Computed example of a mutant assay.
Amino acid sequence: MNDNKQRLQAATNLDELYPVLDALRMTPGWHKKRPSLWPEPRTRFQPLHWSYDVGRVALDQAGRWIGMELAERRNLLLFNPVGDNDYDSVRTLVVAFQMLKPGEHARAHWHTPNAMRFVLDAEDGCYSIVNGVKVPMRTGDVLLTPAYAWHSHYNEGQGNAYWIDILDVPLVHLLEPMFWEEHPERYQPVTAEPEEHPFYRPHARNRELLAAAAPQDGVRRVLLDTANEIKTFDIGFTAIEAGSRRVQPRTTASRIIAVGQGRGTARIGGLTTQWARGDVLAVPSWTPYEIEAHEDAVLLEATDTPVMKALGYYREQ
């Protein structure tokens, strides 16, 4: 410590002082390499659009060589080109297309991050087991996998099953409380097979909720009651009549939009793109967006609004 004090005292000007401070792992607040505060939110994450048609072909190709004995999950992570990132879709969420072939079993594991599945195409016989609860995976269904829950996926149908995964893994990476464990026997036993369960939000019920919502300029919105299962992101549906549009000003929340039905145009920040069923859109924080439907459309949206509100950081423009 005395040597450090002597080096500091020996400095005759700021140019001599700065390298000594740097060696001590001290940064002068007036001499930072980059600003630490700015007038409004900014992000390097980009608005992006991923095509389900393209992703499905990619999964089919990968399925020729990657089986469940080589990979825990046959999935394609939809990443945002920020630096060397090849994982995060937006700051707090990651999205993936996943596929399971007939007769395959994605082995059981648990982890800190919360997860949800939005089923795009699946025949009878496809299902998940979450903490022993067997729940169907049918086209249009939403499945929830809370943090620390054992979960595995099975396809006992005749065709490939495809779905979208959304997880808060990037948030867990930022906060660092990551835990993960594989099931010691690979297979998770079924302890219950209920017709209704909080882990399972069937397509028909979601449509009923949407139909009951009051329309506003051709747009209906419903937020699913999932806070007891997943505390870090909201899940909701938006129905947009053909010719109508949803306009959303900037908010501090990051969001993922997955198309369950329809076609249209999205304008997200500086990106204008044509979307279709199964496609995924990324809306980074503080990015305005507008969704226009060319035909009747249904969109699933996942957003980290609960985290922003819990921390007192949620704001709208």
Score class of each variant (00 low, 15 high):
4 N>R: 06
88 D>R: 08
290 E>Y: 11
237 F>W: 08
309 K>T: 14
313 Y>N: 02
131 N>I: 00
184 P>N: 12
184 P>V: 13
110 W>V: 05
314 Y>C: 01
64 R>S: 11
91 R>G: 06
195 E>R: 11
297 A>F: 05
293 A>Y: 08
285 S>N: 03
213 A>V: 01
27 T>K: 06
297 A>N: 09
23 A>S: 14
176 E>H: 13
66 I>Q: 05
315 R>H: 02
250 R>H: 02
250 R>Q: 04
251 T>W: 00
75 N>D: 09
57 V>G: 07
232 T>D: 03
101 K>R: 14
56 R>T: 06
293 A>F: 10
237 F>I: 05
140 G>V: 06
98 Q>Y: 07
220 R>F: 04
182 E>V: 01
220 R>Q: 15
298 V>Y: 01
160 N>R: 09
307 V>K: 00
267 R>V: 07
297 A>V: 07
2 N>T: 15
12 T>L: 14
160 N>W: 03
131 N>H: 04
162 Y>I: 13
313 Y>S: 04
267 R>C: 04
136 P>H: 08
99 M>R: 13
259 V>R: 01
177 P>K: 07
273 T>L: 06
125 G>S: 09
157 G>P: 05
160 N>Q: 13
136 P>D: 09
137 M>Y: 03
254 S>N: 14
281 L>H: 03
145 T>N: 13
150 W>F: 14
315 R>C: 02
291 I>L: 15
3 D>C: 05
96 A>W: 00
81 P>D: 15
136 P>G: 05
300 L>V: 15
233 F>K: 06
107 R>N: 03
11 A>H: 04
163 W>C: 08
110 W>G: 00
34 R>T: 02
253 A>S: 13
288 P>E: 08
33 K>Y: 13
259 V>F: 06
269 G>R: 02
36 S>Q: 12
206 N>Q: 15
138 R>P: 00
203 H>Q: 12
287 T>Q: 05
39 P>S: 13
233 F>I: 04
251 T>K: 00
36 S>L: 10
151 H>Q: 09
149 A>N: 14
237 F>R: 14
190 V>W: 02
254 S>Y: 00
46 Q>H: 08
280 V>Y: 01
155 N>G: 09
87 Y>K: 12
55 G>T: 11
49 H>V: 04
269 G>N: 03
166 I>K: 01
283 V>S: 00
317 Q>T: 09
44 R>W: 10
305 T>F: 01
190 V>N: 05
58 A>F: 09
85 N>F: 00
147 A>G: 14
127 Y>C: 08
229 E>S: 10
310 A>L: 10
268 I>A: 00
90 V>H: 05
300 L>R: 05
272 T>Q: 11
58 A>P: 04
187 Y>M: 10
305 T>P: 00
237 F>H: 12
194 P>C: 08
15 D>V: 12
307 V>Q: 00
299 L>F: 13
6 Q>W: 05
185 E>N: 11
42 R>W: 07
312 G>A: 02
292 E>Y: 10
56 R>G: 03
234 D>H: 11
296 D>M: 03
272 T>I: 13
304 D>L: 01
153 H>W: 12
244 S>L: 04
89 S>G: 07
135 V>L: 07
180 W>V: 11
100 L>W: 04
1 M>L: 14
32 K>D: 10
239 A>T: 05
57 V>Y: 07
97 F>V: 11
34 R>V: 07
1 M>Y: 08
136 P>Q: 12
247 V>N: 11
151 H>D: 07
233 F>Y: 15
277 R>W: 06
